[in-house]
């Protein structure tokens, strides 16, 4: 068994048994190679079913708000990107970090089952094992090995934080990535488009939306008790498949997570129609960095969030004297 999985099961058993936590948020393995799914367990007998593999893509901090209403102390397994969301939830005062015990999981990247499928490797596939960038496909016929990141989710290829920024117990050695990507190439590409082309691009993307709200519901920071788009009284609950409604939803959502989005890329991962939502969020992150200085508050909860604070010398795009426009 994978070393980290062993360690995971041990620490879960230990913390549940000694009462350090009341429940554990982790992943179990389903019958299929790609099926690692989130679970909430409180039975020590179930700790032996917890697993860590290259399909534990779900960010378990998503479940903390609801589970902390039902449980006093929670143990949670968090990858690098998940830990950023955790910090942001703490900054947003949505969870009490004192009641959460974090088990940190340095993460080499998660595998996209669709990429495996499109490469034709899914036939008769039983299991996929990953150690660093070595990926082993175990099939009915035999074993195939690949080196590299060609099966990683796109979002993982842009990872800026493979190691948890906060944890009580670290479950394995830190992952070192030397192939640092340029961080905003996708945003720059869109910024280069003429205004009209950019508008057309996004109009086309948003028009694909089917209003399934998977992007919102998977987002660790979409944590409103009742979303404005679910509130009948707010008059915006329209489920109409109309371009204006879809644009309205996505732009409002992007602005509502502005300054809080940790760029985990989950919104794009789950979108069934392939809207590149992360580009919208990354544009806002890039702008915030440019306008208010590099902001990485999610790695350091002591820093104040730029959109949550005001300084007199803050950049003010609505100030006509700097922006031109009619005086």
């Amino acid at each position: 068994m994978d070393k980290t999985t062993v360690r995971m099961q041990q620490i879960a058993l230990q913390t549940l048994a000694n009462g350090e936590v009341d429940v554990i948020l982790g992943w179990k393995k389903g019958d299929e190679w790609y099926d690692s799914y989130p679970v909430v367990i409180n039975d020590i007998n179930e700790t032996a079913e917890l697993i860590w593999d290259a399909f534990c893509v779900n960010n378990l901090s998503k479940y903390l708000i609801t589970e902390l209403k039902k449980n006093l102390r929670i143990g949670v397994f968090l990858k690098g990107c998940d830990s950023l969301a955790f910090n942001q939830l703490v900054i947003d005062n949505r969870i009490d970090s004192e009641r959460v015990v974090i088990f940190g999981l340095p993460c080499p990247g998660m595998i996209d089952p669709q990429k495996v499928k499109h490469a034709g490797l899914n036939k008769g596939l039983l299991k996929v094992e990953r150690t660093g960038d070595k990926i082993v496909f175990i099939t009915k016929e035999g074993v195939k090995e690949y080196i590299g990141r060609s099966f990683d989710y796109d979002k993982c290829l842009n990872c800026r934080c493979p190691n948890p920024v906060v944890s009580k117990y670290m479950l394995s050695d830190a992952v070192t990535r030397t192939d640092e990507e340029q961080y905003f190439p996708d945003v720059t590409e869109i910024e280069k488009m003429p205004l009209e082309a950019r508008y057309d691009y996004w109009t086309k993307q948003f028009s694909k939306c089917i209003k399934c709200y998977a992007c919102r519901n998977i987002c660790p920071l979409c944590s409103c008790e009742t979303c404005v788009f679910d509130n009948i009284a707010a008059g915006v609950s329209s489920k109409a498949d109309a371009d204006c409604e879809q644009q309205f939803f996505h732009i409002i959502r992007a602005y509502h997570v502005a300054g809080r989005c940790v760029d985990c890329g989950e919104c794009s991962r789950v979108c069934p129609v392939g809207i590149p939502l992360e580009k919208l969020n990354r544009k806002i992150i890039k702008d915030i960095n440019q306008l208010y200085g590099d902001y990485t508050a999610d790695t350091d909860i002591a820093k104040s969030p730029p959109l949550g604070t005001y300084k007199v010398d803050d950049f003010d795009p609505f100030d006509g004297s700097k922006q031109g426009g009619k005086k």
Binding site: C212, A214, I218, S238, P272
Partner: peptide, 23 residues
């Protein structure tokens, strides 16, 4: 249902789900 996030992706990609709203 514990892990269910309450999104509608399963119902919308499903070829047989047919519930509708009127507005």
């Amino acid at each position: 249902s514990k892990s269910c996030l309450g999104c509608g992706v399963c119902t919308f990609v499903c070829p047989t789900c047919h519930c509708f709203d009127i507005q």
